[in-house]
Write a protein that binds this DNA or RNA. Sequence first.
DNA 1: TTGAAAGCGATACCAC
DNA 2: GTGGTATCGCTTTCAA
Lengths: 333, 333
Amino acid sequence: MATIADVARAAGVSPSTVSYVLSGKRSISADTRQRVERSIRELGYHPNAGARALASSKTNLLTLVVPLRTDINVPVVMQFVAATVTTARTYDYDVLILTRDEGIEELPRVAASSIADALIVMDMEAADPRVSVLRSLDRPVVLIGLPDSHEGLTCVDLDFEAAGAKCVEHLASLGHRTVALLGPSPVVYSRGTSYAGRFLNGFQQTATAHKMRATTMPCAPTYAALRTCLDNLLARRRAITGLVVHNEAILGPLLAELDKRGKKVPQDISVVAVCPDDMAVSQAIPLTSVSIPAATVGQLAVEMAMKQLDGDRDPVIRLLPPELTDRGSTAPR
Amino acid sequence: MATIADVARAAGVSPSTVSYVLSGKRSISADTRQRVERSIRELGYHPNAGARALASSKTNLLTLVVPLRTDINVPVVMQFVAATVTTARTYDYDVLILTRDEGIEELPRVAASSIADALIVMDMEAADPRVSVLRSLDRPVVLIGLPDSHEGLTCVDLDFEAAGAKCVEHLASLGHRTVALLGPSPVVYSRGTSYAGRFLNGFQQTATAHKMRATTMPCAPTYAALRTCLDNLLARRRAITGLVVHNEAILGPLLAELDKRGKKVPQDISVVAVCPDDMAVSQAIPLTSVSIPAATVGQLAVEMAMKQLDGDRDPVIRLLPPELTDRGSTAPR
DNA sequence: TTGAAAGCGATACCAC
DNA sequence: GTGGTATCGCTTTCAA
């Protein structure tokens, strides 16, 4: 494997000159630059990452902590990972994956051994035990989600509270008075996942503000759970006319089940989903939805990490405003 | 950040002794070891990854090349990634993610700059252009999938040909004579994805061997495509009594649509799926299936990479035998 | 059983 | 505009 010394020798210059050609940190004569670049090409030279990290205290690696449990929304996580990796590459960074199951003790290891320059952590819970550890790492950190105590930490996420509000506003503007939220699995709530609670708040507060009758119901991602929920919801004396679904896994089964029970969407019941756009589009019928902008969040997370690496250590909270797209699964009442 | 010299000083020994305590490469007196370990703990020492990589020519990083297109089976990919990361950690390795979109030129970069010690590449196509590049990398490589020309390369995957055969055998043993394969999206075939073709071969050859009438039909992951496929399949003069579904995304919609058309499973039509077990279980009705052992494959891939890093460079082809679980969605004819 | 010191391959400071 | 070289923090050979 060629080293910087090999390149220098081949180009008839010193190693430092090769280094500067690569980094652009000082001006090089056109002639020298060309000879060096030619040698680099001919030798197939790639700077050794370890040596570079040691000398510069920069690894050009980002650590991404991903939740890989089964009860998470796998496609959303994937979109997020993809966006993170792609964006990182535009900054010449590679991405290291840590699954959250490896546990809290992996974070200090990765930080202290200088494996990565910064960390991006997904799926924060409201009272996440990792918060204090992350704060102590002395490395740039970006959280996806908004834990309760996030002082000093940079966070980015969809504004789920506003999203909950937006869904209700939409139904209210169509004249609906009796609505329900079909939420994520009970375990998501009991775990204190931050986005679930924030969405729920936005939903309830807005319904209250509009003096609507509002029911909320968590739903495990199984047919049995869904049927139970629907049995319950559809048996109400005051018929529910608007349904907000914050549970991607259940969208397909829900539509199938409503169809089976002879409930037409949107004639009998309006449905608003909270999910990535592609998912809303690919259901049995296209769904009106508030988009979960996983790719955007991933990109922003990397950009915020890069900003911190550039020296701007001020914590930032960035909550993306929700966007609702009407695809016809909601109708006036 | 504490260095090995700090630890050595605190413990009253030389840096080399600390290094040997850590690596276990030479015997250390109990007393010395304890003093060193104590200092390590007290200082919160973690060896610097870059320095270690430079001195030892080992990064303890594995590169995982993941396809992050939308037409792939996202949950399967996730299971695979999770298993890879988890297994890698048991060998004290971390995992670097490369998405295949970054393209072929990233592979030489990662290898030549010694970012990672070995590579695991998912989603190989039959005539994958990456094969020759990978062969030239001079680093351990494990392929998930079986490209046509894999001489000299280590591969691991489910034996999809045997899986296709097993599905047909199962239906044949139940007396079915007219069967169909609902396959992956046409783009998966046209891309030449290796597993799709292998499964198709196993399906067709076995059907032929049993003198069964067999239809095969790719199906895009949309409701429209599914309906078209079903219209076609259900209109046959000889009614299809056994359906093999090698397309996870379409399982839910398929069952809903069959239900809607009044086709009872398994009374009117038997269904065998090819998908991860948890997916087969969580459908509207539990499905008889051949399991896609993503987690096992991920684990094996890491183990095979580690074996190569241990010096055993002989290429190995490992095709896992398919396992069929009867969950009642198939019935005698 | 332990220590001293020579690398590993870059970066970046100091000279010229 | 370019070169020389100390330095980063660890591993490992050589010596004792």
